[in-house]
Computed example of a mutant assay.
Amino acid sequence: MAVSHADHQATRLARAEAHAALHGLALTPLRRQVYAAILASERAVGAYELLDALEPQRGRVPPTTVYRTLDFLLANGFVHRIESKNAFVACCEIGVPHRGQFLICDRCSTTVEIPGDELADQLSHTAPAQGFVVHRQVVELSGLCAPCAHAARLDTALP
């Protein structure tokens, strides 16, 4: 039996709440709503998209409030920032130290995190060998997700 997107979201939200409780982090209603909005999207979401998503529930929220909320979620490992999009995606492994890479679809913007300390370690060791000092490492791969690649093949096959 397949797990629905809503069930998957509920499981991930419950995991986030348990992590927050275990570590004494205040997952306030606003923080929970922002995190839930990010979870609901299968793509990276920008701060202003989050403001729009919150408006029906909370009314107009100042952008600084959402940015502070995003800072909390980032600092505590609930979300990652997608540098190329200036947007945010839910972490696939809350509470598990890891370094991830991101697959970003150019067509539909679906964003998938792939945990992989091995690649991150390899990159981290290669840079110093070249005399380069790494301050932050972000790996984002852009291309087409499977459904978009399939649709693109169909588009090119049509007369």
Rank of each mutant, 00 (worst) to 15 (best):
M1E: 09
H8M: 13
Q9T: 12
L13P: 07
R15L: 14
H19C: 09
H19F: 15
A26C: 09
L27S: 00
L30N: 07
R31C: 02
R31T: 07
R31Q: 03
R32F: 03
V34H: 01
A37H: 10
L39T: 01
S41F: 07
A44G: 10
Y48S: 15
L54I: 06
Q57G: 05
Q57L: 13
P62E: 11
P62V: 05
P63Y: 05
T65N: 03
V66Y: 01
T69G: 08
T69E: 00
L70G: 04
L73E: 02
L74P: 00
A75P: 13
N76M: 02
K85E: 15
A90V: 00
C91P: 09
I94L: 02
V96N: 02
H98P: 12
F102E: 01
L103Y: 09
D106F: 05
S109E: 05
P115S: 04
P115H: 02
L123F: 06
S124Q: 15
H125V: 08
H125C: 06
H125A: 08
A127F: 08
A127I: 07
Q137R: 12
E140R: 11
E140Y: 08
S142D: 12
S142M: 14
G143E: 01
L144Q: 06
C145L: 05
D155T: 09
D155W: 03
T156I: 12
P159S: 12
